[in-house]
Amino acid sequence: MSQNKPGASEKRVEKLQIMVADSELSMIDDWRFENRAASRSAAIRSLIYLGLELTKTDPEQAGKLLEQLDRA
C-alpha cells in the first residue's frame, strides 16, 4: 500500500525501495538465515547498522572497503 494512505502519517516509519541484483539479494538472504534475522527487512537494517558502526569505529577499514566497491 502506498505511504499516503490514511494512518501512514501516524507512524514513524518509512518504506524504502532499494534495487539489488538477484545475486546480491541471495547474499542478503544467506546473511539473514546465518544470523537468524526476523525478516529480510530486519537483516538489511542490521547490515546498515554494521556498516555505520564500522565507519565510526574503524574509518580506515571502512574507507578501504568503500574504495574497493567504487573500483569494482
Partner: peptide, 10 residues
C-alpha cells in the same frame, strides 16, 4: 492493527 500489509508483517 497497522492497516498495512507490509508494515503489519514486519
Amino acid at each position: 492493527v497497522t492497516a498495512d500489509r507490509l508494515v503489519g508483517d514486519e
